[in-house]
Design a binder for these strands. Structure first.
Length: 458
RNA sequence: GUAGCCAUAGCUCAGUUGGUUAGAGCAUCAGAUUGUGGUUCUGAGGGUCGUGGGUUCGAGCCCCAUUGGUUACCCCA
């Protein structure tokens, strides 16, 4: 038989890893709850229609599709062959696949809101912690199955929501002890840039290119813009815009420079005033995180229309560990217009990698057995079992060694599992109705009456 | 989808210009030790060198293919 293996880009999580991951999940969940968000879960799979076309052309390719059942039915063979022909040409795929694993949490949430808007109280604030799947080539910090933790507010245009979400970001990363930069920008500003370059239809080309500034440098960005069909004049325009990025870190200067650029473009001014509001209202947050305007921040997802966020861990080479933004009308994609929203997402798997790299997990994250009862014979272990159940009743995590064995072996088991206390009930203790409690880290031990064991502190 | 790198014991890896029976550390198991562990010592098990072809008197090593992993690009958490 062939060696068992895991699908590419997926992982098993051992006990220690799960504890560490849960530490992150719990931290994020507590903060979400603290800000009044309600939990939601949606299925692992969605109808393909729900997902297709929502993440851009590239996104569509990365959706994990699920093969229909019954493809081997001989009666359908002819039809299926025709359908498959269509698939080969990138057309209708219904006959072959009509379901897919979810790609993110936002679109399924929009689908949920569209389906249930009659019952929901707006603004509806939900959080969602679930795995998502992308048929991407795995690499550092990128997996095919990974968790997102999203918080979204729908049904409100208020910028207070952005302030709250930024505050959630800084609170969570403070709690996790991860040094981060919260980068913010606004699609309205990018839209203004596009307008100043001849047309809003150019926006996608422009954003994709400038998003790469810090990665490939100014010259390459210009090159890419030229390849995407921008004129020299337009590129110069963008160059001027990008030059503002050199003041990155000095929000006031960046704001002033951008104001000069867009003083005649209403949408640009609007974007700037949004950013100013968010900055003003987050300035009093007690946090080590820096909040800074990044004019090159664009975000790939096309549905964003207002504020956009991205989180970068400082001092580590890692893609963004969180991101989000405002969208005017996500549910409009599902036939329910005029429900605006804004949301953020945490990438737990990358956060984990960052914390591992920076050694940020607390020591005491290990929650293991506190007490091991030695198994020294049939009668002995039967009494040990009785005492153990009493201890468990009192809330102490215990286990009884699974079989009668030599001391040596049982000690080693305790040591390996990091169990701090052992309790010995042998022949002597059995006769005296006592038990011997030993602290393995200090080596101290004392023999106490069995009926006082539950008063003992471990 | 494109490109680079890697694949030897359960794990991490050595393995010389191609040359006899492929090694080490860790881990596992047993013993030194019949009621007191961690250290130490002794011993044991465990590999068709990812797979399939080829070159050669001879391949873990060279060539081709294939599979898997990994990193980068595209894109993204």
């Amino acid at each position: 038989m062939a060696k068992p293996s895991l699908p590419q880009g997926t992982r098993d999580f051992g006990p220690e890893t799960v504890r560490k991951r849960n530490f992150i999940f719990n931290t994020i969940r507590e903060v979400f709850e603290l800000y009044g968000f309600q939990p939601l879960e949606t299925p692992a799979m969605e109808n393909l229609d729900t997902l297709m076309g929502k993440y851009g052309e590239e996104g569509d390719k990365l959706i994990f599709k699920i093969l229909n059942n019954g493809l081997d039915n001989p009666e359908k063979e002819k039809q299926l062959r025709e359908d498959f022909e269509k698939v080969l040409h990138g057309k209708n795929t219904k006959g072959i696949t009509e379901r897919a694993l979810k790609y993110d949490l936002t679109i399924p949430f929009a689908r949920y809101v569209a389906m249930n808007h009659g019952q929901l109280t707006f603004p509806f604030k939900r959080y969602q912690i679930q795995p998502v799947w992308r048929a991407d080539r795995p690499q550092k910090g990128r997996y095919r199955e990974f968790y997102q933790c999203d918080a979204d507010v729908v049904g409100s245009n208020a910028l207070l929501n952005e302030v709250e979400l930024v505050s959630i970001y800084t609170t969570v990363f403070d709690k996790l002890n991860i040094p981060v930069e919260v980068k913010i920008n606004n699609r309205k500003i990018l839209q203004a840039l596009a307008e100043s370059c001849g047309g809003t239809e150019r926006m996608t080309d422009i954003t994709i290119a400038i998003d790469k500034l810090d990665k490939i440098g100014l010259d390459k960005v210009k090159e890419e813009l030229a390849n995407r069909g921008l004129t020299e004049e337009q590129i110069n325009n963008i160059d001027t815009y990008l030059s503002v990025a050199r003041y990155s870190g000095d929000n006031e200067t960046v704001l002033n420079q951008l104001s000069n650029l867009f003083e005649n473009i209403p949408v640009g001014k609007e974007g700037l005033s949004d950013i100013r509001y968010i900055l003003d209202n987050t300035s009093s947050l007690a946090s080590s995180a820096r909040i800074l305007i990044d004019p090159t921040l664009a975000r790939g997802l096309n549905y964003y229309t207002g504020s956009i966020f991205e989180i970068k861990a400082t001092g580590v080479v890692m893609g963004s560990i969180g991101g989000g933004g405002r969208y005017d009308d996500l549910t409009g994609l599902f036939g329910v217009p005029n429900i605006p929203g804004v949301g953020i997402s945490f990438g737990v798997d990358r956060i984990y990698d960052v914390m591992e790299e920076l050694k940020l997990f607390p020591e005491n994250i290990h929650v293991g057995t506190q007490v091991l009862f030695f198994n020294l014979g049939t009668k002995e272990s039967s009494r040990a079992f009785t005492l153990m159940q009493q201890l468990r009743q009192a809330g102490t995590r215990c286990e009884l060694f699974h079989e009668t064995a030599k001391f040596d072996k049982q000690f080693k088991y305790a040591e390996k599992k990091n169990i701090p206390f052992i309790i010995i009930i042998g022949e002597k203790e059995l006769n005296d109705n006592t038990c011997t409690v030993k602290n393995l880290s200090t080596g101290e031990q004392q023999t106490i009456p069995g009926n006082t064991l539950t008063n003992h502190t471990f």
